[in-house]
Amino acid sequence: MQDFLVFVSAIMQVDVSQLSGNTKYKEFKKWDSLMHMRLVMEVEDKYGVEIPIDEVPTIVTLKDLYRYTLPT
């Protein structure tokens, strides 16, 4: 997960030490609705996955988003 957090920190332009799997959408200043969609698109692009649009609202923590990067 550390590599994933480094990836996300680069997108959010924050130090990786500010992030964890428990970092929450809308509670972390840099993670607003626009960043939410950007993260989804960046994860899809980097990891070659497709996150169904109806599941996007269920992504609340970085751990939730990270799950989409794992092999099924």
Rank of each mutant, 00 (worst) to 15 (best):
I59V: 06
I59T: 04
P52C: 04
P52A: 05
L70C: 10
S20I: 08
T58D: 14
I51Y: 02
M1W: 10
P57H: 03
K30C: 11
N22H: 14
Q2T: 15
M35D: 04
F4I: 03
P52E: 06
S9M: 02
Q18F: 11
Y25E: 09
F7C: 06
D15Y: 06
R38N: 13
W31N: 00
L5Y: 05
I51M: 01
K29D: 15
K29F: 11
V14K: 02
H36V: 05
L65Y: 02
E50N: 10
W31K: 02
K24S: 11
M37N: 12
E27S: 14
V6S: 13
D32K: 08
Q18M: 14
T23H: 01
Y47I: 08
V43P: 03
I51R: 02
I11Y: 01
L39Y: 01
D32Q: 10
Q13D: 15
P57G: 01
E50I: 11
W31F: 06
S33F: 02
K26C: 12
P57T: 00
Y47T: 04
S33R: 07
T58Q: 15
L39E: 03
Q18H: 13
T58F: 13
T61D: 10
L19T: 03
K24M: 09
F7T: 03
T58G: 10
P57V: 01
S9W: 05
P52F: 08
G48L: 06
M1P: 13
K46D: 08
Y25C: 09
V8L: 02
L34P: 02
K63C: 07
E42D: 08
W31L: 07
E50L: 10
D64R: 01
K46G: 07
K24F: 00
Y66I: 05
Y68E: 05
K26M: 14
E55S: 14
T72P: 15
D54G: 08
H36I: 01
V6N: 14
V6R: 14
R38P: 00
Y25T: 09
L65P: 04
K26F: 12
M1A: 13
M12D: 07
K30Y: 12
V49N: 05
I51H: 03
M35A: 14
D54E: 15
Y66T: 06
S9T: 02
V43Y: 00
D64M: 04
M41G: 12
L70M: 13
I59C: 01
L65G: 07
D3H: 11
D64L: 02
T23R: 02
Q13Y: 07
K26Y: 10
D15C: 09
V43S: 02
P57K: 06
V14P: 07
V56M: 09
D45E: 12
M35L: 10
H36W: 05
L39V: 01
